[in-house]
């Protein structure tokens, strides 16, 4: 009695769409930036993401991995993914070449409130691979720079060899419209003309108007508590500080359960939460 249901092209959210790797940039010894273009022109055109969202990247025969989008929504037609060689999917991806095809589903999740942030001063803090999702927001703000007040970016890495998007940030250091602080925990005797110290070291000295400032933090789990504490000392509101969580988002649709944190699904309720939401998620902070 078996019949077959044939959902239309866009009705199946489990279906990955073939996307071609059009550029690969080696960022560090473990991270690469992949530029991807969805091959089907209709699907490519229909793909719109917001800052902080992620995609599910498929390699057929290997599996899927959730990867945050590193490119700005102001750039259409392609997306960039900053990927660390960490699990099975990302290891295979790292060995792929320009022209190879992968699968993409998404975009998924809630991102940063870009429209709400307009007209405000912005303080962005990235630690390590946290720059990957935050770069989407950074570049988006850059592309609509006149819409924002003062913009401060603090980007911390463990050592100079781990600094990503270095050429972009090197150029920005001389710009008057971005207060960019690049810092490393240790120089490891490598050439470095940026700052040395944890990201938290640079927040107390900032001149901020707390009632008019939005903060955003993405980094390793241990970093959030300390950076939030510094932002709170500066007087930033609970619900104006945004964080992004990294979990094993397998389905992206609030169903499979792997990314559950407290009562929330990271994939649909996050991955970006404001601090007020985040502190009210049991076990999150």
């Amino acid at each position: 009695m078996t019949q077959l249901a044939k959902p239309s092209m866009f009705e199946n959210p489990y279906r990955p769409w073939p996307a071609r790797i059009t550029s690969i940039t080696e960022l560090t010894s473990t991270e690469k930036l992949f530029e991807l273009r969805i091959i089907d022109p209709d699907v490519r055109e229909a793909f719109h993401h917001s800052d902080g969202q992620f995609v599910e990247l498929s390699i057929f025969g290997v599996g899927e991995a959730p990867i945050s989008i590193s490119s700005s929504p102001s750039k259409q037609g392609f997306i960039e993914l900053c990927v660390r060689r960490a699990g099975t999917v990302t290891t295979v991806l790292h060995d792929m070449q320009c022209g190879d095809v992968v699968g993409l589903r998404g975009p998924f999740g809630h991102g940063f409130p870009f429209e709400e942030m307009k007209g405000k001063d912005i303080l962005l803090v990235a630690g390590g691979l946290g720059i990957a999702p935050l770069r989407s927001l950074i570049n988006h703000i850059h592309d609509e720079r006149s819409e924002f007040g003062n913009v401060t970016i603090i980007y911390g890495s463990r050592n100079p060899a781990e600094v990503m998007f270095r050429s972009q940030f090197e150029m920005w250091r001389h710009r008057k419209d971005f207060n960019l602080i690049l810092t490393v925990d240790r120089t490891n005797d490598l050439p470095w003309d940026g700052e040395v110290g944890l990201v938290t070291k640079f927040i107390p000295g900032l001149e901020l108007d707390p009632s008019n400032t939005y903060g955003a933090i993405v980094g390793p789990p241990g970093m959030y508590r300390f950076v939030i504490a510094e932002m709170r000392k500066k007087g930033l509101h609970y619900d104006k500080i945004y964080v992004s969580f990294e979990r094993q988002m397998k389905c992206g649709m609030g169903r499979c359960g792997h990314c559950m944190v407290g009562h929330q699904y990271t994939c649909i309720d996050g991955p970006v939460f404001n601090y007020w939401e985040a502190v009210n998620i049991q076990g999150a902070m």
Partner: peptide
């Protein structure tokens, strides 16, 4: 899926 061309082949859903 087809791993040579990296395409989804068949996505029919069996229903009883």
């Amino acid at each position: 899926y087809d791993t040579v061309n990296n395409e989804v082949k068949d996505i029919d859903i069996p229903v009883v």
